[in-house]
Design a protein around this nucleic acid. Structure first.
Lengths: 155, 155
DNA sequence: GTCACTGCAAAAGATTTGCACACTT
DNA sequence: AAGTGTGCAAATCTTTTGCAGTGAC
């Protein structure tokens, strides 16, 4: 997270912007959280540390972090964006339950390769690519109660 | 589209709801459109045919259609949902340009297989699954100006 | 002094909801 | 009559923006 902060500071510097206390608190809070987090929750956490940080600044800083490519924000279908930082996290993909909305991260080498192939095939640069699969998780399934591979890591 | 309308009517019937003129117009318009479409655009199209259909009804009907699984709505990062109908469309995936936001549909057999594997592996039912890849499209790339596979269907 | 940064409150944009009236059965 | 459906306008929710004051260089 030290690295992320430094990169952020560098990014700001490059753009002639400053690392302010507010921006630092927001970035620190974000980089210390290893889950998906939404702006509102982040806001609460940040304001728990320093009451004088406004919602507007949180949103503004989130934009900067996304722009700096240190953060990735996406709406997984809940009606608001969820953010996660990129560095220090192995690239992973998302499996989202259509019923309960739960977001499961997973890694799969074949997918990595395939994504690259597809991007190449269409002439796309792989910048910030990601993969999202929607399905119904074992807990929410009412049909065949999962084949057997499910029981192991099924939360 | 006849089939879709019938299924929708059946769905409504099952839930003790009615197929009203408004719902029919909305569904017809939707099923006749083979692109992604957002609520606002749909609204305009529908109101072009029948001025007395309100925005509220469009949204309410969209919810019903999604609930009936005839329609799929997702936010591809533009801040509003885009809808597409499911039946009669070969399953395809989405490649979204991080810069211009353009949504490109593509089909890839390996992906189909892999998605299934991943779903199985985690015990997820494949209901309404889909795959979304983010990258920078040939038109927006400023680095290597695309290998060559891009020029054909670009734009 | 100049220019970036902030909080506040208002605004914006997409979607939902309360309500009274209309239509179906 | 009972219950669903609708339009309208107001409300909601997330995110953005205008503005006036604050602070760094």
């Amino acid at each position: 997270m030290k690295e992320e902060l430094q990169r952020f500071e560098q990014f700001l510097h490059t753009k002639g912007l400053r690392m302010t206390p507010q921006r630092r608190i927001i970035a620190e809070t974000l980089f210390a959280t290893h889950h998906h987090i939404d702006a509102e929750t982040l806001c609460d956490m940040v304001r728990g540390r320093n009451r004088s940080v406004s919602r507007a600044t949180v949103y503004r800083t989130l934009s900067l972090l996304v722009e700096s490519k240190l953060l990735d924000g996406r709406d997984y279908g809940h009606g608001y964006k969820q953010y996660e930082h990129v560095i220090g996290h192995e690239h992973h993909d998302h499996l989202i339950c259509s019923v309960c909305g739960k977001v499961l991260e997973f890694t799969n080498e074949s997918v990595e390769r395939l994504q690259q192939e597809i991007l190449d095939e269409h002439g796309y640069a792989p910048e910030t690519y990601s993969l999202v699969i929607h399905g119904v998780c074992p807990d929410c399934r009412t049909d065949a109660p999962a084949g057997g591979a499910a029981s192991s890591s099924a939360h």
